[in-house]
């Protein structure tokens, strides 16, 4: 009969492990952003053009649709925020405006929004301190988007389809207040804060 070996475990070990960097917050930079609003009666034609150009199906409900080079996040009825990497798409807005001529009004938002990402097991707990909508995976599954507010600051937010990362976009002039709220809300979870 083999002897049983027991390893002592500190009663608080799990508490320490679960709180250490259980949330990561980072600034999301380097994106070209454009607001796209369908012209009157052109919604279907716009969706067809976007599908043809980028292989992305524009969502008519609050969701994000991600293609290989560009993402379209729902930003209101018949409106979307289009995003692409700035380094490979320096003229994103002008380019998009040309491609969607007659179908949508396109406005540059690159410098108008500040973006931050929140991920990790406690991301929902951090966001729940200021975001008044239900972020439970059943109510806000991967790929969902919402226009709401975070600590009274208007945000457009979405949950990526791929890696359980929340992204929040707030007006540029609110960026420091927003960042202050976000980092303060995460303190209890010892966040990993990136630039």
């Amino acid at each position: 009969m083999s002897s049983l070996t027991l390893t002592p475990t500190n009663a608080l070990a799990s508490a320490l492990n679960s709180s250490r960097s259980s949330v990561a917050i980072a600034v999301l930079d380097g994106l070209s952003i454009a607001h796209v609003a369908a012209r009157k009666g052109q919604s279907a034609a716009l969706a067809a053009r976007v599908k043809e150009l980028f292989g992305v199906t524009l969502s008519q409900t609050p969701r994000i649709a991600t293609g290989s080079n560009v993402s379209f996040v729902w930003a209101g009825p018949d409106q979307w925020l289009a995003m692409a990497r700035a380094d490979t798409n320096p003229d994103f807005e002008r380019d998009l405006r040309g491609k969607l001529e007659g179908l949508a009004s396109v406005a540059d938002q690159t410098d108008a929004r500040a973006l931050a990402t929140v991920r990790g097991p406690n991301a929902r707990h951090v966001l729940a301190k200021g975001v008044p909508i239900d972020l439970h995976p059943k109510a806000f599954p991967a790929g969902s988007a919402a226009i709401t507010h975070a600590s009274h600051i208007g945000v457009l937010m979405w949950l990526s389809e791929a890696d359980d990362t929340f992204t929040l976009a707030c007006p540029r002039s609110y960026a420091s207040s927003f960042w202050n709220w976000l980092t303060e809300s995460a303190v209890e979870f010892s966040p990993a804060v990136g630039e």
Binding site: P62, P77, P132, I133, A146, I147, H149
Partner: peptide
């Protein structure tokens, strides 16, 4: 109809 149920402070 677009966003789902939201509290009064959004309206």
């Amino acid at each position: 109809p677009y966003c789902g149920e939201r509290s009064l402070d959004e309206y």
